[in-house]
Amino acid sequence: MRRINIGLTDKQRQGVVNLLNQDLADTYLLLVKTKKFHWDVVGPQFMTLHKLWETHYEALTINVDLIAERIRTLGDYPVGTMEGFLKTCSLKEHPGTIPLATEMVAQLLNDHEQIARNLREHVQQCSEEFEDDGTADFLTGLLEQHEQTAWMLRSFIEGDAIETDGSKPNAKKQIVEV
């Protein structure tokens, strides 16, 4: 096999691959959970969540492929089995339960936030410890996607009604004369 000469040592590349395999495993488990909730959701929010999660699992499917290909780009092989994913990931399954729609949202929110925290650490490690700014940049893009998805899910289950001007209904509005 021809030696890889992309400006990273074998040790640096292996360190990055280990991080990417965790990100791959987390993304794959989140994909499975999102698909499962897409199938199982019921209630008044059915159509909204069914469509939202379809969008999410399509994006996650693309990201699974991109992460695996980044690992191949670095000259290694991605984890590719359910056993491997479950050993490697930081997320947890909740088998045997079908939660209410809002709990589904909360679980996926927690998972996206966990992945965002992991990615933030991995970006820093890739850049500072392993000197791989290419992978750090790649992971930053994934981080931004998970942050945005978390915001959308958080917005679904949090907050009070607000007026179009951003104020709360029935709140005393203070009039300021200029």
Rank of each mutant, 00 (worst) to 15 (best):
residue 28 Y to S: 05
residue 33 K to S: 03
residue 34 T to R: 01
residue 35 K to G: 03
residue 36 K to Y: 03
residue 37 F to M: 11
residue 38 H to N: 03
residue 39 W to R: 06
residue 39 W to Y: 05
residue 39 W to H: 05
residue 40 D to W: 04
residue 40 D to P: 00
residue 40 D to S: 06
residue 41 V to D: 03
residue 42 V to P: 02
residue 42 V to K: 05
residue 44 P to F: 14
residue 46 F to Y: 14
residue 46 F to Q: 07
residue 48 T to E: 15
residue 48 T to A: 13
residue 49 L to F: 13
residue 50 H to S: 05
residue 50 H to R: 06
residue 50 H to W: 04
residue 50 H to I: 02
residue 50 H to C: 02
residue 51 K to H: 13
residue 52 L to Q: 14
residue 53 W to Q: 07
residue 55 T to Y: 09
residue 55 T to E: 14
residue 55 T to S: 14
residue 56 H to M: 09
residue 56 H to R: 10
residue 57 Y to M: 00
residue 61 T to A: 15
residue 62 I to G: 12
residue 63 N to Q: 14
residue 64 V to F: 14
residue 65 D to M: 12
residue 66 L to R: 13
residue 66 L to Q: 10
residue 67 I to N: 01
residue 68 A to D: 11
residue 69 E to L: 11
residue 69 E to C: 07
residue 70 R to H: 07
residue 72 R to N: 12
residue 73 T to A: 15
residue 73 T to C: 12
residue 76 D to G: 10
residue 77 Y to S: 13
residue 77 Y to H: 13
residue 78 P to T: 09
residue 78 P to H: 12
residue 78 P to M: 08
residue 79 V to R: 15
residue 80 G to L: 09
residue 81 T to E: 07
residue 82 M to Y: 12
residue 82 M to N: 07
residue 82 M to L: 13
residue 82 M to E: 09
residue 83 E to C: 08
residue 83 E to W: 11
residue 84 G to Y: 11
residue 85 F to N: 00
residue 87 K to Q: 15
residue 87 K to S: 14
residue 87 K to P: 10
residue 90 S to Y: 11
residue 91 L to T: 06
residue 93 E to H: 07
residue 93 E to L: 09
residue 94 H to Y: 11
residue 96 G to S: 09
residue 96 G to I: 04
residue 96 G to N: 04
residue 97 T to S: 05
residue 97 T to P: 00
residue 99 P to F: 08
residue 99 P to V: 08
residue 99 P to A: 05
residue 100 L to Q: 15
residue 101 A to W: 10
residue 101 A to Y: 12
residue 105 V to F: 02
residue 106 A to M: 10
residue 106 A to V: 05
residue 106 A to C: 02
residue 106 A to L: 11
residue 107 Q to L: 12
residue 109 L to N: 02
residue 109 L to Y: 09
residue 110 N to A: 15
residue 112 H to G: 00
residue 112 H to K: 02
residue 112 H to E: 04
residue 113 E to V: 06
residue 114 Q to A: 14
residue 114 Q to T: 14
residue 115 I to R: 06
residue 116 A to P: 01
residue 117 R to C: 07
residue 117 R to Y: 03
residue 117 R to M: 03
residue 118 N to Q: 10
residue 120 R to P: 00
residue 120 R to M: 01
residue 121 E to V: 00
residue 121 E to N: 03
residue 122 H to V: 03
residue 122 H to W: 01
residue 122 H to G: 03
residue 122 H to M: 02
residue 123 V to L: 00
residue 126 C to V: 00
residue 127 S to E: 12
residue 128 E to L: 09
residue 129 E to R: 12
residue 130 F to E: 01
residue 131 E to A: 14
residue 132 D to P: 06
residue 132 D to F: 00
